[in-house]
């Protein structure tokens, strides 16, 4: 009985202490390396995008089509990145992923890539403007664009399995490279990511 009384007296102090501690929480911001992964949830993040892009482009350039093209054409192959459809359950910044793919291709030095339709149209408008306003020496001619030899496209899929506080998320990225002259699929790559998230039902 005495113990109970002591406990009852202690409860308000414990509650106050807890509340005081939670009230001390404030916003804190620190600068960290952009390559450092900060996984706050099992959602697709910047690191996933970068790792998948690098792994897939490395795999793509290891296939025989690069050397075959060099042998037959005598120049580096030009690639156009078409659509990568997000068929997953997460809103993934596909543009960011496409940019990671482009950077990985350019960094390899084994292939060039050409701008997509939207960018091409913008550049053509600029060239039209040059014809009217730029000096003859600095004008860029129309009809001198480099055509793409190969088209890169693909999909991002995912599925989720969860029970209680545990959730497993599985992402699969499929990319394919098509020869634009023959429609031959010269490369098909696949990269899978699996993430496990565990959450507690209670916390302070």
């Amino acid at each position: 009985m005495k113990n109970n009384r002591t406990l009852i007296k202690f409860v308000p102090f414990a509650v106050l202490a807890t509340l005081s501690l939670s009230a001390c929480k404030s916003t804190k911001v620190e600068r960290i390396d952009a390559n450092q992964e900060v996984a706050l949830s099992d959602k697709w993040n910047g690191k996933d995008s970068q790792l998948v892009a690098e792994a897939m482009i490395s795999d793509m350039l290891s296939f025989p089509w690069v050397n075959d093209h060099l042998k037959n054409e005598g120049s580096r192959p030009a690639i156009i990145v078409q659509t990568v459809r997000n068929k997953s359950h997460q809103h993934i910044a596909v543009d960011t992923f496409l940019n990671d793919l482009k950077r990985a291709i350019l960094r390899s030095g084994q292939a060039d890539f050409v701008a997509n339709q939207e960018i091409r149209n913008e550049i053509r408008e600029e060239r039209k403007d040059q014809e009217l306003n730029a000096s003859l020496e600095t004008q860029n001619e129309m009809g001198q664009e480099q055509g793409a030899d190969y088209a890169l496209s693909g999909t991002i899929n995912s599925f989720v399995d969860q029970q209680g506080g545990k959730r497993v998320t599985f992402y699969q990225v499929d990319l394919r490279l098509i020869d634009m002259t023959s429609n031959r699929e010269v490369w098909n790559g696949q990269k899978k990511i699996q993430k496990l998230q565990e959450r507690s039902g209670y916390g302070f």
Partner: peptide, 13 residues
């Protein structure tokens, strides 16, 4: 999503 983890201090309050 963030409400999944329940705060014990808030439950007491």
């Amino acid at each position: 999503d963030s409400f999944y983890t329940q705060s014990i201090s808030q439950l007491v309050m």
